[in-house]
Amino acid sequence: MSEDAALIDRFLEMMAAERGASRNTLLAYRADLMGAAQIMGGLAMATKAAVAELAAAWATLAASSVARKSSALRAFYAFLEEEGLRPDNPSSALPRPVTRRPLPKILSTREVDSLFAQIELRLAADHPARLDLRLSALIELLYGSGLRASELVSLPRRALAADRPFLILKGKGARERLVPISDRARAAVAAWLPHVPADSAWLFPSGKSHLSRIRLYQMVKALAAAAGIAPERVSPHVLRHAFATHLLEGGADLRALQSMLGHADIGTTQIYTHVDSRRLVELVNSRHPLATMTHRRVDGDASAP
């Protein structure tokens, strides 16, 4: 197992350096690889037959979990083969479960409006509370720019410039992207900034670091409850989904949306085209040229549309 541990370390170093894998991804890969090693009695010298036995060991797991574990092992064995550490690649024996990516949870525009109405109600006070100003800036950036929770809470204090309607983020895989910032979001951040300590490195400081993702989740769910929306339906990621879906419904280009969301693969972005199938059907029925043409019977007689 010590040999496996050393090889896993080398593999993860490669994933971090060459592919920009995040810390959470690296931790998940390590756990999956070590778990497989325990089942097979080792990874480095495992035969194809031993690898094939993983399917039975994983039989009770969800298809998505099996797919994730298989992906980790395929990448690991491909690395060993490329580095000349194994003459073969036994990963072809791994199970390939059929998985369907779940449709993202979203909110309607009316529900989003109710969230902002709740914030506006709080800001209408003669002297808005400091934490309400912070909440306003957070929600404006979440829904107005589609930021990930981790990207939002770790924004530097000077991330937004008064004369620049965008910011440059480094997201998953260390990929940089340009994110447009709405006038509303810039105004909300400008109202919040005077309450940020001058020596803070973060836009949303908390203690010795920045606001945690867990705290952000709690704040978003509390706002949802106050707005009359079931808290379990709302999270920072749901607001990111709402940003994407509502932009697409408004006519945004899929490639532009991919760039704004920071998706490496447009296939990830295309999931939003399946969210509101009823709207798409209505669009075809009302806007397609055939919608204005009359139907014809088999005998050639025209019937009413």
Rank of each mutant, 00 (worst) to 15 (best):
M1G: 12
E3R: 13
L7I: 02
L7F: 10
D9M: 03
F11V: 04
L12A: 00
A16W: 00
A17M: 14
E18S: 04
R19I: 00
G20Y: 04
G20T: 01
T25G: 02
L26N: 08
L26R: 14
L27P: 00
A31P: 00
M34T: 11
A36D: 12
A37W: 15
I39L: 11
I39A: 05
A44D: 11
A44Q: 15
M45N: 10
M45F: 09
T47E: 11
A49D: 15
A50T: 02
A52W: 10
A52Q: 12
E53A: 05
L54T: 03
A55M: 05
W58Y: 09
T60P: 03
S64L: 09
S65E: 10
S70W: 12
A72W: 06
A75R: 09
F79M: 10
L80I: 10
G84A: 03
R86E: 07
D88N: 07
P90H: 00
S92G: 15
R101E: 08
L103Q: 13
L103P: 15
P104D: 02
I106T: 15
E111Q: 13
D113I: 00
I119D: 13
E120H: 10
R122F: 04
A125E: 08
D126G: 07
P128V: 01
A129L: 08
R130F: 06
L131H: 09
D132S: 00
L135A: 04
A137N: 12
L141C: 07
G144P: 09
R148F: 04
R148P: 15
E151G: 03
L152Y: 09
R157F: 13
L160N: 05
R164K: 08
F166C: 05
L167I: 14
K172A: 02
K172T: 00
E176D: 07
V179T: 13
I181H: 03
D183K: 07
A185G: 14
R186A: 11
A187W: 01
A188C: 09
A188W: 06
V189L: 06
A190L: 07
P194H: 11
F204C: 10
F204T: 02
S206M: 06
S206R: 06
K208G: 14
H210K: 05
L211H: 12
L216M: 04
L216A: 01
Y217W: 15
Q218K: 08
M219E: 06
A225S: 08
A226G: 09
A227E: 08
G228K: 05
I229A: 13
R233C: 05
S235W: 15
H237Q: 12
V238Y: 14
L239R: 13
L239Y: 14
A242R: 14
A244M: 06
L248E: 13
L254I: 14
A256F: 00
M260H: 05
G262F: 01
H263V: 00
D265P: 11
I266F: 01
T269W: 03
T273C: 09
T273I: 03
V275C: 11
R278F: 06
R279W: 03
N285W: 14
N285Y: 14
H288W: 12
P289E: 00
A291I: 02
A302D: 09
S303D: 06
P305I: 01
